[in-house]
Design a protein around this nucleic acid. Structure first.
Lengths: 188, 188
DNA sequence: AAAAACAAGTGAGCTATATCACACTAACCA
DNA sequence: TGGTTAGTGTGATATAGCTCACTTGTTTTT
């Protein structure tokens, strides 16, 4: 379970056993039930969460009360309200659990202490954030250039696991398509 | 001119004169003419560019030959093909100049050496990348939840300078709207 | 075991935005 | 300095995707 986190870090920087135990000491572990909220808009949300088991989503509720999904996170992924996390401001997003979920989480303060103590962890977080940035640019490009149908099929190809584990209505909300339209696309 | 770069860094970390000269020694300076390419899709593009003067765009050309603008950059902004930069792979985006432009640029290798030598610069780049990530999330949200009209007026409010300096067709491409539709929105 | 809530599909009509076509003006450059 | 190209506006028509309304099957909940 810890190994999942260690393995993820070691894709980018190598750690001795002692170093990994230092890293781990800055994290906490927690369990959530399906439907439980991890972050609520309006509250402070100073933690970033590494998913060990389960499935979550982060989403925004707009002025018309419509829900828009920004991110899913399953095993080996991270999730938070990044703005609330980095700027220490109240959350504007919600994060909740689609399945029973286990996470390791770390506060922004702990993360900065950890990076000060173990320099290569700052390199790790920099690489991780840059990779996230690139992924978001790709998603913007797909929203700008692809039809609903193309986006759906690309999603299906890219995340076959999520396709199975998620209700279609959530995928629709992530892709920026209505439930009904996605249902018609999925058929063809 | 150097001061612009120094000032931007010092919004996040403080530097002594010696430290700033060290930082600057890792950058190079270059001038571009309007219409000149800074990055061409297919080429290696290992540099990130800090704009001292001028205006640029990064864009993707899709399979139908349509252009989609990912980013503009004017004074005090950074621009690159992030994927090509971070992963040292050939570019998939183009970057070119909308006006005559001056930049300081740094290669990924130089940046990593600089961070190894001056730890707080790694903190600076981490913060900068995180801020960029948050901005992209906001843009995704606006693509998911807002109408063309709302996106245009939000852009106009957020970037009044760009509104004046850019041809409307480029703004349309950035917002994911046709030139004609944007022209009709701009009127109302 | 019944009732309620969730998930998925589908028809009918509507609307925001795209596309195509043309006109006009201003800016650039040979 | 006159010809070409860039920028903008606007009408007419087409269409992808939305909304609303209903059905049916499947999990949860009690």
């Amino acid at each position: 379970m810890e190994q999942l986190l260690r393995h993820q870090i070691e894709k980018i920087v190598q750690l001795t056993d002692d170093e990994f135990h230092l890293v781990l000491s800055y994290f906490s572990f927690r369990t959530y039930k399906k439907h439980q909220y991890v972050v609520q808009a309006g509250d402070m949300a100073p933690n970033d969460h590494f998913v060990v088991k389960g499935l979550l989503k982060s989403f925004y509720i707009d002025d018309d009360g419509k829900t828009h999904i920004l991110q899913f996170a399953m095993e080996d992924w991270w999730i938070s309200d990044p703005q609330a996390f980095h700027n220490r401001t109240p959350a504007t997003l919600h994060v909740d659990c689609i399945e029973d979920t286990d996470v390791y989480y770390i506060s922004i303060d702990s993360r900065e202490q950890l990076c000060a103590e173990l320099q290569k962890m700052e390199y790790f977080f920099l690489k991780k954030t840059a990779a996230g940035y690139i992924a978001l640019q790709r998603r913007i490009l797909s929203l700008l250039s692809q039809s609903a149908d193309e986006r759906y099929h690309q999603f299906a190809q890219l995340y076959p696991t999520l396709l199975q584990r998620l209700p279609k209505a959530l995928i629709a909300s992530y892709l920026g398509v209505s439930r009904e339209t996605l249902s018609r696309l999925a058929a063809g």
